[in-house]
């Protein structure tokens, strides 16, 4: 309940934040604080320097229509995203997924950038980022670079954001097909025991393009390529959804914890994948 001591910084620019990170080895960025502060209160994290992004909010908190994609500042809160008509209309999977994060108070403070940079294997947003083929804009002292979702998540609390880098923007391609995020909440924490995001387009009675991603099941969110392959171009039926969903954990060693063992988690992933495919089809 009582974080250990740290030196507090509140930079006024991204560049200043990066300089602070480079100058102070044991430093952490804090955005909404809902991933970091709980661990600091338990003293599981004891950074010597805390770099508060609060003064960058006016800079990095936005949802912009960029024609073919939506640009979302990394400090945009879940609530801003879930209530944005632009996101609801053109990136419904993201709006729906972030509406499943935590609770109302958490969504008021938690930020999309903070969450995906934290890459909790049981977090919801990575599923939507993967399924929507988003691109992340990362800044360092050397300039900006962009990273595709498929390269962004790199395992247990690991992302492409390196030392001295800040996640600045998330670019989500506009998508007018059907989508659905299906989640099984841990009864205590509310995190995903498993969560599956599906985006698909219809081609008559057939599935056109499809992306399927899974969170909560492995050490990081992943694209379920086997499911996608089994669906692409096929005539939709509930039986197809079920047989394709059976590939949801192909090649994955599902996580185990005291609540759910690997077999149960795997089953959840398949069940949720099936539900998500059907729901996405129905709203396509």
């Amino acid at each position: 309940m009582y974080p250990a001591k740290f030196t507090y910084h509140a930079p006024w620019s991204v560049e200043e934040a990066i300089t602070l990170m480079n100058e102070n080895e044991d430093s952490k960025l804090i955005a909404g604080g809902h991933s970091l502060l709980p661990t600091m209160k338990m003293r599981l994290a004891t950074p010597a320097h805390l770099i508060d992004m609060k003064n960058l909010r006016s800079l990095l908190s936005y949802i912009h229509d960029k024609g073919d994609h939506i640009a979302i500042g990394s400090l945009t809160t879940y609530h801003q995203i879930e209530s944005s008509s632009l996101v609801k209309q053109a990136a419904a999977i993201l709006a729906q997924t972030v509406s499943e994060v935590g609770d109302m108070q958490v969504r008021n403070m938690g930020t999309l950038g903070g969450s995906i940079a934290h890459a909790d294997p049981a977090g919801d947003p990575p599923a939507a980022i993967l399924a929507s083929n988003a691109t992340m804009v990362i800044q360092s002292s050397g300039g900006e670079r962009t990273v595709a979702a498929s390269d962004f998540f790199q395992g247990f609390f690991e992302t492409a954001v390196g030392a001295g880098e800040i996640l600045k923007e998330i670019r989500v391609p506009k998508f007018s097909g059907g989508s659905s995020y299906q989640k099984f909440k841990h009864p205590a924490s509310g995190y995903a025991v498993a969560g599956v995001a599906v985006c698909l387009t219809k081609n008559g009675g057939n599935i056109g393009g499809v992306s399927v991603s899974v969170t909560g099941v492995s050490d990081g969110a992943y694209r379920a390529n086997g499911v996608e392959a089994a669906l692409t171009g096929q005539a939709f039926s509930e039986a197809l959804a079920a047989s394709a969903a059976a590939h949801a954990i192909d090649g994955i060693d599902a996580l185990e914890d005291p609540f759910a063992d690997a077999a149960y988690r795997g089953q959840l992933a398949k069940t949720l994948a099936k539900r998500a495919i059907i729901a996405a089809w129905n709203n396509a």
Partner: peptide, 16 residues
């Protein structure tokens, strides 16, 4: 104790 916080020990919520 594995269920040593509200992260693991589930109290009923309003929607339970």
């Amino acid at each position: 104790l594995l269920s040593s916080s509200f992260m693991e020990y589930a109290l009923p919520r309003a929607d339970s």
